[in-house]
Design a protein around this nucleic acid. Structure first.
Length: 431
RNA sequence: GGUGAGGUGGCUGAGCGGUCGAAAGCACUGGUCUUGAAAACCAGCAUACGUUUGUAGCGUAUCCAGGGUUCAAAUCCCUGCCUCACCGCCA
């Protein structure tokens, strides 16, 4: 959510910045509603003031033993006037809120203008793209050959399309990856490990910005009612981790707060029906190790560079070639003001594919969540800044390893840093 | 799931339907005192929004949340959520 005062006072500037990310703000409508809101709010508060004053004088009169009947008669119409004013105000406020909750964050000035992913800016590449002296298989075929380690048929039987069963050494490798990532972030990058709920309430989803606009991307445990959806499955650990700060006021010295968690993520993939139907790339359920930081405003852009580096470290230690991309205005997520994507090299697709997305949300989520901190000696608390990034998507990392570490004989080499997690195993081969 | 108790400011904890944004204590901040510290004493100490050039003033709201009764609700009624205790069940 944007700063309502900024939105009000700089409406045209906001609209212009939003245009860069393909969002059209109806400034006329919003300005009209704001004007109504202001008038109604003043009116309502005046009526309330009058009612309070009169009620108070009735109380005093009664205490003094005076006859209060004439005073009561005077109040007469006030109550109903107040009720209608309140109702009118609530209706307008609801409209304003509906609009403001649906406005995405403003892009930072360092973000390149562009319409879609084709306008993203490649920042760096790392590693050398491997060459194979045999015909490369994609990850599905590599795993199929390795004792049917990825079992999509069973996924369909148990649940439906976009679900998978992993077995044997592939399942273990998947687990090893998550362990490795968590250990790296906690032991070398200073994050605190967290175990969090996989079901969250609607307040949490509003806080990080999944609701109200993106409800159809989530799995809900019950249909939407006026009280929300009840509990919903998390689409990312960003939701529970970031919402830990909701309605909190931290001391300045407590920041930055750095949290990591390994969780499954659930996405309905509504609107992606034809895309990436083969393999592990796009599943309804996948695991991810998430990084979240809560920082002081002046630190957030520097923190974005660091956090992205923490995600890059995973790829580097796994010796997977990747590139770092600065997303353009048109390709960023709803709450982000600046986002780097890390894209890993997939030999079978002969291209880079997204494996991590690291974003600075500045105060966008913090304002929704009322997540604040107080500077030493300061009276007023300030909104903090929130950042998050994948460090990394475990399923897609498994894909990258299956493809980049495949051998001519059909076996799979195990990246050095994972061998300890695999009981010393250096490769996986057919039984 | 059943029964009972309860949810008040950073914490503890008062609060006959009216002058309660809320006693008191603790914590915290500033000051007096002191060579310094402690103690003592004095003062201050919630958040959001609106109005406004204003971190001033004024106004409004907030005593778990949402409804209701009333001229007036922290206080009464209903619903929900949560906490605690005991019972049942369970990994």
């Amino acid at each position: 959510m944007l700063d309502p005062k900024f939105l009000r006072n700089e409406l045209e500037l906001v609209a212009e910045k939003l245009k860069a990310r393909g969002f059209n703000l109806d400034t006329q409508q919003l300005a009209d509603l704001e004007e109504q809101r202001k008038a109604l709010q003043v009116k309502t508060e005046q009526l309330q003031n009058e009612r309070n004053a009169r009620s108070k004088s009735i109380g005093k009169a009664k205490a003094a033993g005076e006859d209060i009947a004439p005073l009561l008669a005077e109040v007469g119409q006030l109550g109903t006037d107040l009720d209608t004013a309140k109702a009118d105000l609530a209706a307008v406020q609801e409209q304003v809120e509906k609009i403001t909750l649906g406005i995405p964050n403003l892009p930072d000035d360092s973000v390149p203008a562009g319409a879609d992913e084709n306008d993203n800016l490649e920042v760096t590449t790392w590693g050398t793209i491997p060459s194979f002296d045999f015909e490369v298989k994609d990850h599905v075929d590599v795993a199929e050959f390795l004792n049917k380690g990825l079992d999509f048929e069973s996924g369909v039987k148990l649940s439906g399309s976009r679900f998978v069963v992993m077995r044997g050494q592939i399942a273990k490798l998947h687990r090893a990856l998550a362990q490795f990532m968590l250990d790296l972030h906690t032991e070398e990058h200073g994050y605190e490990e967290a175990y969090v709920p996989y079901l969250v309430n609607s307040d949490s989803l509003y806080g990080t910005g999944q609701l109200p606009k993106f409800g159809e991307d989530l799995f809900h445990t019950q249909a939407e009612t006026e009280h929300g959806y009840g509990l919903s499955l998390i689409p990312t650990a960003e939701v529970p981790l970031t919402n830990l700060a909701r309605d909190e006021i931290f001391d300045e010295e407590q920041l930055p707060i750095k949290l990591t968690a390994h969780t499954p993520c659930f996405r309905s993939e509504a609107g992606s029906s034809g895309r990436d139907t083969r393999g592990l790339i796009r599943q309804h359920q996948f695991d991810k190790v998430e990084l979240v930081q809560l920082v002081k405003p002046e630190d957030s852009f520097e923190t974005l560079e660091q956090l992205t580096g923490h995600a890059e470290a995973v790829l580097q230690k796994l010796e997977l070639p990747y590139r770092k991309v600065l997303l353009c205005t048109g390709d960023m997520g709803f709450g982000a003001t600046k986002t780097y994507d890390l894209e890993v090299w997939l030999p079978a697709q002969n291209c880079y594919r997204e494996i991590s997305s690291c974003s600075n949300m500045v105060d966008f989520q913090a304002r929704r969540m009322q997540a604040r901190f107080r500077r030493k000696g300061a009276k007023k608390p300030e909104l903090l800044h929130t950042l998050n990034g994948s460090g990394l998507a475990v399923g897609r990392t498994l894909v990258a390893i299956l493809e980049n570490y495949q051998q001519a004989d059909g076996s799979l080499a195990i990246p050095t840093v994972l061998q300890n997690y695999m009981g010393g195993l250096t490769s996986i081969s057919v039984k």
